[in-house]
Nucleic acid binder design. Structure first.
Lengths: 147, 147
DNA sequence: ACACGAAGCTTCGTATGCGAAGTATCGTAC
DNA sequence: GTACGATACTTCGCATACGAAGCTTCGTGT
């Protein structure tokens, strides 16, 4: 395989992998009429309690402006709401509405549980190999930035 | 690490990796005022000659509707153009404009060359480990679809 | 007190990205 | 030769996604 093909092959596979993970997540959350990112927000809030926008942004690896848009739609559908922090007027705390909490806590934790299972299918050794390979790839991409 | 953390860790890392690759590509192409996907289209056309929309779609792992939009913008900027196939009226052939070819062929092949180099930094053994890990992950995601 | 940079969000413009529905053309069965 | 399913694209509606610019609030220095 020449370098061109090899590079594209890896990029394609990484993309496909990310798509599969994303698609998997989306499919899980779809039962609750949530998209992947929306489900991730709600999952984080269920698990960690109220979060700042910046914390959500950091946890999800997305820019604040993107998170802001996702929250707009979640708020529109009455799933979460924004609340100004009392201690710092700049900060917005995102919380799950009581209504959604009441209606969806059970089914949602169920979804999350199934999501957790995804990697349970792997042996510890396989997990190690995966993380190692991700390390290598990350390093390569990092190094290549200086070419 | 509990299962939740482990799953999210892998997802985050895969996403970060895909972002790095994508960002790297975008940075390279930015010199020619092209976004990542746009650069990929032009790169494929330079390398393989005129292509059908469906072929581009398949090569890039994107839906036809997405490719169609990318082509709209490339056409707007006079970088590529659509041409109806003579043998099959349904088929559209995408070609690079002479203008862009003349102005950008050199710098573009330069970009592509640097892109090729990204994985040259890896040893063959590392490449093998990467592809193996990607295999494992793909298999896991595939299997977990039936949970 | 007040000026002023920094921090936290939102808004805006643009580019992806997808699936569903629509359009045009091709092949084929009849 | 014509009806009709299949194929190749486009269009539409929506949800991400980002960076740049704007707004408000906080801290700090004076």
């Amino acid at each position: 395989m020449d370098p061109f093909e090899r590079s594209y092959e890896v990029v394609r596979r990484v993309k496909k992998l990310k798509d599969s993970l994303h698609g998997n997540m989306s499919r899980l959350f779809k039962e609750g009429n949530l998209t992947g990112p929306q489900g991730m927000v709600v999952g984080l809030l269920f698990r960690m309690g109220p979060l700042k926008i910046s914390e959500l942004s950091q946890q999800m690896g997305l820019s604040m402006s993107t998170v802001s848009g996702i929250l707009d739609r979640l708020e529109r559908d009455n799933i979460v709401y924004r609340e100004k922090s009392e201690t710092d007027g700049r900060v917005i705390l995102v919380k799950i509405t009581e209504e959604f909490k009441k209606n969806s806590k059970h089914s949602f934790s169920n979804m999350n549980h199934r999501w957790d299972k995804i990697l349970d299918l792997a042996t510890d050794e396989e997990i190690d190999r995966i993380l190692e390979a991700l390390d290598i790839l990350e390093r390569l991409v990092e190094e290549s930035r200086n070419l």
